[in-house]
Structures are given as C-alpha cells and as structure tokens.
Amino acid sequence: MTKRLISDLGGLPAGSIDRSEHEPTMTERRIDAMMILLRAKPRSFWASDENRRTIESLEPKTYAESAYYERWVLAMKGLLLEKGILTEAELDAKVSEVRSREQMAKI
C-alpha cells in the first residue's frame, strides 16, 4: 500500500468544524506577504509546487500540531536555506538576537 502523505486528509474521519471567523494577526499577514513576494516575479526564488513540497515534508507531528502560518514560516525557512538566500548560522544568530531584544523590552 502506498504511504499516505501527511497533507492527504481527504476522507479521513474528523470532528466538528470550528466555523468561527478569524482576523489574521500581523505576524500572519507578514508571513503571507513575504511568501508572495519571494515567490512572485521578479524574484521567483521558488515555484508554488516547491512551497507545497516543503510543507508536505515537515515532520508529521509538526504538520499536525502547527498553526497554518506556522507551517508556512517553517516552509519559508526551509526554502530560504535550500536556495542559499539565508544560512542556518545567520538565522540562528538572528533568532537569538530577536529573543534577547524582546526580553529586554519587557524589563
């Protein structure tokens, strides 16, 4: 039997649908905007299929438990590293910098 992709949800049993509306947060809007800009002309760093491939190759646990835009930003990170636009080292350093800055702002 072929293995079912983590994204292949059609027909699986599931509970009731939460139909409440949601106003996208600033973080979500920015992720959406950056994804479009990086994929669209003139940059065309990747195709929409690559975006999906990256989301679908997330760890099954990550895929199942992540928020929608969390999956998007993880995919964006994966593609930026894969295409050599950013490196793991500079991204790790930046995340630490942002964290300590936000921590300082609270004190």
Binding site: S66, L74, K77, E90, V98, R99, K106
Partner: peptide, 20 residues
C-alpha cells in the same frame, strides 16, 4: 492584532524578515 511574540515561529518570522 499587535501582540508580543510568544511562540517560536513568531520569533522566526521576525528573524527572517529582519535578515531579508
């Protein structure tokens, strides 16, 4: 909508954006 980042992925968004 403006709230302080709490989750790992929210920090990741800020880091990616600032680097880009």
């Amino acid at each position: 909508d403006i709230t302080e980042p709490k989750e790992d992925w929210e920090f990741l968004e800020i880091a990616i954006r600032e680097l880009l």
